[in-house]
């Protein structure tokens, strides 16, 4: 299935801003996070089609997944 993956802020470094990628049926948000070698500790917001999701959310054909790193400084 085709998934549009959008990365934000530091997650873009050495990766991409936006890419259409192919995954097997049943792929979860967590699978994509691990495939892209993103640190789970650094994960802030995860959105699928603008809705907030968790790592175990199963993706579906045509979904747009957006991943934002955590910001905590002041």
């Amino acid at each position: 299935m085709n998934i549009t993956v959008k990365l934000f802020a530091t997650f873009r470094a050495g990766r991409f801003d936006i890419e259409s990628r192919t995954y097997a049926e049943g792929t979860t948000v967590g699978d994509v996070v691990r495939e892209l070698n993103l640190s789970e500790k650094e994960l802030g917001i995860m959105l699928v089609n603008s809705r907030h999701v968790k790592l175990d959310h199963r993706l579906e054909e045509g979904d747009t997944l957006s991943l934002f790193p955590l910001l905590g400084g002041g």
Binding site: A9, S39, E42, L43, G44, L70, G72, G73
Partner: peptide
């Protein structure tokens, strides 16, 4: 709601500073 599970998370600032 946003941060409940991220209490021990590592923010971008730890890596990049400000």
């Amino acid at each position: 709601r946003l941060y409940a599970d991220l209490r021990d998370g590592r923010g971008v600032e730890k890596q990049l500073g400000n």
